[in-house]
């Protein structure tokens, strides 16, 4: 029982990072119908930029407290990633908006690899230690479950951001414009919505969320490196599909569920498959779920829109 509870907590923490990244995928997909492959790599850039900023802050303002330093690093990284998201959209995707549908996808893969290569050139190929500004020492166990302050922070921050995003999309003018654009570009622009601006805004918001997710990821594991974004990116995409792509609530639900499935699955797969499978198959859960959902329920758990919108 203790083990199951612990696995649940593990899963929720990983899942909330997935959820935050999944929001970025789902927003872009909802509006452009594009799988932004590079989104996971924005997370990576976010983590590495934050690392660099924190190093500088620690160098020039060593007396700043731990939390202000972290917030400073986070701030820099969010701004850089917003700019990066905008640049990517502007230079790589905008011109392809009306191109054949494979073109933007291939470009997106190219952008993803380009970001990784650039990070490799700037930060090298080795793993970097991410400064421990929020403690990773576990608190007193509750019911045998260990949890660390940084994990609690991850849960709180992602929940807050998700609520904020829901409010933004559902209650503000910008959000209404975004929903209109997602519904139908042409009609939205006829109604006076500057769709170019709205799409740019979508990329900027998504990138900011990815930056936060990157910093959380690195704070939790204490590492950052050039290839760290790819797998979480892919899994977050799975989460977005699982929840129903284009649906914000779905992305959150999908992220949490995927985290739980992975964690509990890896913990119990050996018993469930009578020793045939084992934890070496941890990484296939996401892909299997992805396949099953797309084949049997392409609209995902919460998706209402038909996904066929070529």
């Amino acid at each position: 029982m203790e083990t199951l509870l612990q696995q649940t907590v593990n899963g929720l923490v990983v899942g909330s990072v997935y959820a935050l990244v999944a929001l970025g995928y789902t927003m872009v997909y909802g509006i452009l119908g594009l799988i932004n492959f590079a989104h996971g790599d924005v997370l990576m850039i976010g983590a590495l930029v934050a690392l660099e900023a924190i190093r500088l802050i620690q160098l020039y303002a060593p007396d700043l407290g731990l939390i202000p330093t972290l917030l400073g690093g986070l701030g820099v990284s969010v701004i850089v990633c917003m700019a990066l998201g905008y640049t990517i959209e502007r230079t790589a995707y905008r011109r392809l908006r009306n191109a054949p549908r494979l073109a933007p996808l291939i470009t997106a893969i190219g952008v993803s690899f380009l970001l990784q290569t650039l990070a490799m050139i700037i930060w090298g190929r080795n793993y970097h230690t991410f400064p421990q500004l929020v403690s990773t020492t576990p608190l007193e166990p509750v019911a045998g479950v260990f949890i660390t302050p940084v994990q609690i922070a991850i849960l709180v921050v992602s929940a807050t951001l998700m609520v904020a995003l829901l409010l933004l999309v559902n209650k503000t003018r910008l959000g209404r414009a975004m929903r209109a654009t997602a519904e139908n570009h042409k009609v939205a622009s006829l109604m006076g919505v500057d769709t170019n601006k709205i799409i740019a805004a979508t990329f900027i918001i998504g990138s900011a969320l990815a930056a936060v997710a990157g910093v959380m990821f690195s704070s939790n594991y204490g590492i950052a490196h050039y290839a760290m974004g790819f797998m979480p990116g892919l899994k977050a995409f799975t989460a977005a599909v699982l929840g129903g792509i284009g649906n914000l609530g779905g992305a959150m639900l999908g992220g949490l569920l995927l985290g739980l499935v992975e964690s509990i699955g890896a913990g119990y797969i050996e018993d469930m498959s009578f020793g045939f499978l084992n934890s070496s198959y941890q990484d296939i859960f996401a892909f299997v779920i992805l396949g099953i959902v797309l084949i049997f329920r392409p609209t995902g758990l919460l998706g209402e829109r038909v996904a066929d919108r070529a």
Binding site: E2, T3, Q6, Q7, N10, G11, V14, F217, Y221, I223, A227, M228, M231, E262, S263, I264, A266, G267, N278, S279, S280, Q282, D283
Partner: peptide, 21 residues
């Protein structure tokens, strides 16, 4: 216990939890 991970993994919590048991 014999558990497995990959050379690209960063999260070992679920296999470690299993080992802890």
């Amino acid at each position: 216990a014999r558990e497995f991970t990959s050379d690209k993994a960063t999260d070992f919590l679920s296999i470690l939890t299993r080992i802890k048991a």
